[in-house]
Amino acid sequence: MPTTMRINGKAFQSSSAPNARLLDVLRNECDLKGTKEGCGEGECGACAVLVNGKLVNSCLIPLGQMEQAEITTVEGLPEDSALARAFVQCGATQCGICTPGMMLAATALLAEHANPTLEEIRWGLSGNLCRCTGYGRIYAAIAQAAGGSADV
């Protein structure tokens, strides 16, 4: 039985097996290459997407659970947003491989806390590994996007 979902606002049907990883469906069937594979076991967050607004690691999600789900990948985020601008300005991306996941983690965080404290930012990103930045510039970007000072 095919699985029907909405990906970045568009209806999509996949006839892959229900145990196919959402990550592979996104990358190979939808050609959404912004979702990355860093570990394949739920540890790095490079594959993070939003499912019904919640941040999840798509390498751990079987397609079968996605019936009627609303999925957002990095390609579904607005091209120009306070968050995107802040990420570029503050130096929140270096090699960029963690960045799509970070953008989604930040989006989820800001949806929950419009003005997050540093502690909330830290915890909000704690499922996403970044080996390049030491996270400091990412905190600064999120704080700036939330309209706060980037005093981090």
């Binding site: 290459k33 912004g34 594979e37 995107a84 991306t93 960029g96």
Partner: peptide, 17 residues
């Protein structure tokens, strides 16, 4: 701004895979 910033943030940058 970093010259590679936007491509990385939007997911458009292509890595080997």
């Amino acid at each position: 701004a970093r010259v590679d910033g936007f491509a990385k943030i939007s997911g458009a940058a292509l890595y080997v895979d």
